[in-house]
Amino acid sequence: MKLTEIKELLDAEVITGANRLEDDFQEVCSADLMSDVLAFATPGTILVTGLTNVQSVITAHVAEVGAIIYIRGKHPEEDAIKLAKQKNLPLLASPLSMFEACGRLYAKGLKSGSNTPK
């Protein structure tokens, strides 16, 4: 699913990465614990999170997460936005809850971007 469609689906605002709205994503991982992302996220996944600090962007960069969606109307902190711009990482902010955001993505056929043992 293209990032532009995901933006519409989640009523999201694009904070950075407006040049990457045509990027296609198949997987989603949701976590507030960055160690979970570092341990289980698959490269290229979308990360849905409520963690808005710079660590969210560093983690995404290190783990090769393709885009971050912040939920519940939270906005990433200034240094997070700055680093995301440098790394050309798309950041979106959605007013939806974690459940609602992930539920909508799941219903559209996106798959788990998390390698946790079944």
Binding site: M34, S35, S56, T59
Partner: peptide, 15 residues
């Protein structure tokens, strides 16, 4: 609160 402290760091480094 910063997203760390799940006790997963060292095992994941090893992995």
């Amino acid at each position: 609160e910063m997203g760390f402290g799940a006790g997963m760091g060292l095992p994941n480094i090893k992995r």
